[in-house]
Amino acid sequence: MSAPSPVLAVRGIAKSYGGVRALDGVSFEIAAGELLALIGPNGAGKSTCFNIVNGQLRPDAGTVHILGRDVTGLPPRRIAGLGVGRTFQVAAVFPSMTALENVQMALIAARRGVFGFWHPARRIAREEALALLEQTGMGAQAERPAAALAYGDVKRLELAMALAGEPKLLLMDEPTAGMAAGERREMIALVRRLTRARGLAVLFTEHSMDVVFGHADRAIVLARGRLIADGPVDAVRRDPLVREVYLGGTRPGREARP
């Protein structure tokens, strides 16, 4: 038996906008149970790379395989159907529904039950939805309207919704953006736990270096559309090129302090 294929394999993807190369021959892989951070300066191609993987953009060249299947150029909705969950930089949920209804909706959609016209949605997938809310620490807030939740809780709710499709791959765009330090710690620890427990592969972008170096297994660094580093976070942190174009370090920064 051959080695299990990676959950996500990106090979040689490139993308140009009006003659400007936004992404140039980028390749990487993620295995199940792995937490991979995608970092780099603004405008380095992180969003482009992310949006090619999730299907919002079609690459000019290269391929994207998910669980061994070529998904290059498929629309986001089809990619979602293949077991890819997503969370957004600004958490997106359905504010006019309760937390429970939000997760029920995600479950119904994942099971292709959207075109049901008769049976009340309230009674569909209720237990599973409650279980997901429990797992993300939102069990006590199930009946509250999403519009009334604190932002940190909205992020947890979004995570529960992303998990509804039983994804093998989770794409998280700045999972801790807009959260205070304490909340960030809890959030990333939660993602870490779920990754291990479910054998999930997670690709996330992040601006907080504390989150990246404290919690990711591996990091890849983009600069001017090219991959300049790929490896365990400690190696990436010490990489001279990465320090030069991205991390800096001439000033005693956070990582230099005790």
Partner: peptide, 13 residues
Amino acid sequence: SEGVAPIVVEQMI
């Protein structure tokens, strides 16, 4: 400094 590369944060400081 939100959403800005660490090196730019240094310039901003």
